[in-house]
Design a protein around this nucleic acid. Structure first.
Length: 492
RNA sequence: CGGGAUGUAGCGCAGUUCGGUAGCGCACACGGCUGGGGGCCGUGGGGUCGCAGGUUCAAAUCCUGUCAUCCCGACCA
């Protein structure tokens, strides 16, 4: 297993190349750790955006946009949050350049243009948003506020990794304000469930819903709900988080409202987000040795049609032959590409679209015209089949749902077969080291134990599963009593 | 910031031990044959060998410095 998985890990970068390239803008410059998203990759992101956005709207949320820059004084208002992000901030200190007299044609920072107060490039927007909410909220009648923002954020990580941890990334961040604690907790859970649904039903990525332990919690949160997904190499990836923020930000930004019974109360808050990291999850979950594999719901091209011909006459005949298919694909809003490029051979096109993960391929040539047939190919199973021309649409409809389901089920059974119980610490270490995947084990609930296990095995508590049946036991490390099993894994 | 490795054509690499005219594969351009799985043959274009300094008649190769990248730690969506 491990050999194959090592190969997979190397392959990730190859798969990414269809979607994204490392930003390589200037020599010696620190734009490193950023990525350029290619059109094909961005098309996937747009699909994810649209589908998620619809889910947010269906649950009563609205979009808005807040500034990129956070004045330092706002940033430091919520102490824990500020502390959590302090070590990875990009900071704007000046607002003007001038010509360098010693070095004609070059520019230098104009020291006279130093900002009175530094601006932080947002690593997350709680500070800016709560400073704004303060002005928007007076009464319980103004609540709840359910706002989402699609934006870029910057986190100056020491080590970056394409898709999974780039210095700048795209995401959506939701920020809500509520009248009661219960309502805010419900919102955080609602969104975590929504993320899980999106991951499983749209991306075909099985996830485990859970709560983060104290040390893995978002800086400034009371509770962090999360979804964790297992990648093909046995490492876990945090795919999305939804935080119950309590009244921490309301207190930090002094956001009070007049309640129904006339009291002045602090509001209750949540925040939640998923990022372009999800695209990394998509790649690492489904791709195989032939390249990307995309679920039909997110594939920029769902069906590719490749004509086979030797002469212009033959091409024209093939084009006429498949015209009804193209018309119907259009009317059914199935995204397709009729790849009529004459500059590439059919075999090249087959491979290219396989590498790009196009779910369905249709091939039509002179033989098909003669037999009124078509060749249809499904990317997930790499199987081709000769079908009657008239059956093409029932087949496409079938494949679109079947590929979507098959990808999920395949990933689901992989995940399930890689969740193992550990009963002793020895067994635990062995599983983490030699098998990977999730290890379900009892934990005494203390940060100290978690830290020690992390130091000794590199495994962290990915989550305290929500859906799991509670079972009492004793901690594998300290032997102290434990209320339930938690999931450990090595993580990205 | 600690430990390890690497920088040579757009990409992937050889050449460095032992100094002597800059190479290969892919990609690119042109011509022809091809066309139901990355096809074949021929021709051609493209490189301040990461950067700076030093040693030498002569440096991709040796020495010093420096910058960057990747991997492993600390950090993290």
């Amino acid at each position: 297993m491990s050999k194959k998985l090592t190969k997979r890990e190397e392959d990730y970068s190859k798969w990414y190349n269809e979607l994204v390239v490392k930003a390589d803008l200037a020599e010696n410059s620190s734009v490193r750790g950023c990525m350029v998203i290619k059109p094909y990759g961005y098309a996937i992101w747009e699909k994810m955006q649209n589908q998620l956005d619809q889910m947010f709207k269906d649950t009563g949320h609205q979009n808005a946009y807040f500034p990129l820059f956070v004045p330092k004084s706002l940033f430091e208002a919520e102490e824990k949050n500020a502390e959590g992000f302090a070590k990875e901030c990009a900071i704007v200190t000046h607002y003007r350049l001038k010509n360098d007299i010693k070095n004609p044609g070059k520019l230098i920072v104009d020291e006279k243009a130093k900002l009175e107060e530094e601006l932080i490039v947002r690593p997350t927007s709680e500070a800016v948003i709560w400073n704004t909410y303060k002005k928007w909220i007076q009464s319980y009648r103004d609540l709840p506020i359910l706002i989402n923002q699609w934006a870029n954020v910057v986190r100056w990580e020491m080590r970056t990794r394409l898709f999974l941890r780039t210095a700048e990334f795209l995401w959506q961040e939701g920020h809500t304000a509520h009248e009661t604690k219960k309502e805010a907790i419900n919102e955080a859970i609602l969104i975590n469930d929504l993320y899980a649904d999106f991951a499983e039903k749209h991306m075909g990525i099985p996830v485990i819903k859970g709560l983060k332990s104290d040390s893995e919690k978002f800086a400034g949160a009371e509770e962090t709900y999360c979804i964790e997904a297992l990648m093909q190499d046995g490492k876990s990836l945090q795919a999305g988080t939804s935080h119950f923020l309590g009244q921490n930000f309301a207190k930090a930004f002094d956001v009070k409202f007049a309640s129904k019974d006339g009291n002045l109360d602090y509001v209750w808050a949540t925040s939640w987000g998923v990022s372009t990291r999800l695209m990394g999850a998509l790649v690492m979950t489904h791709s195989d040795d032939n390249g990307l594999v995309l679920p039909p719901k997110l594939a920029p091209i769902q069906v590719v049609i490749i004509p086979i011909y030797k002469s212009i006459e033959e091409f024209n005949a093939v084009q006429t032959y498949i015209e009804p298919i193209i018309d119907k694909l259009k009317s059914k809003e199935i995204s397709f590409l009729f790849d009529k490029r004459d500059t590439y051979k059919p075999g090249f096109k087959f491979n290219e679209h396989e590498m790009k993960g196009v779910p369905i391929r249709i091939v039509a040539g002179p033989k098909d015209i003669e037999n009124s047939s078509l060749e249809i190919f499904r990317r997930d199973k790499m199987e081709k089949e000769l079908i009657n021309f008239d059956d093409v649409f029932s087949k496409i409809d079938f494949l679109i749902t079947d590929i979507q389901n098959n990808l999920f089920e395949k990933a689901q059974s992989f995940t399930n077969s890689n969740i193992r119980n550990a009963y002793t610490y020895e067994e635990f270490k062995d599983l983490i080291k030699n098998k990977g995947g999730f290890v379900s084990a009892h934990w005494d609930g203390t940060v100290e134990t978690e830290e020690k296990i992390k130091k000794e095995t590199k495994a962290t508590i990915r989550c305290i599963p929500i859906d799991k049946v509670k079972e009492k036991g004793s901690c594998i490390y300290s032997k102290k009593p434990s209320k339930q099993r938690v999931l450990f894994a090595k993580a990205y």
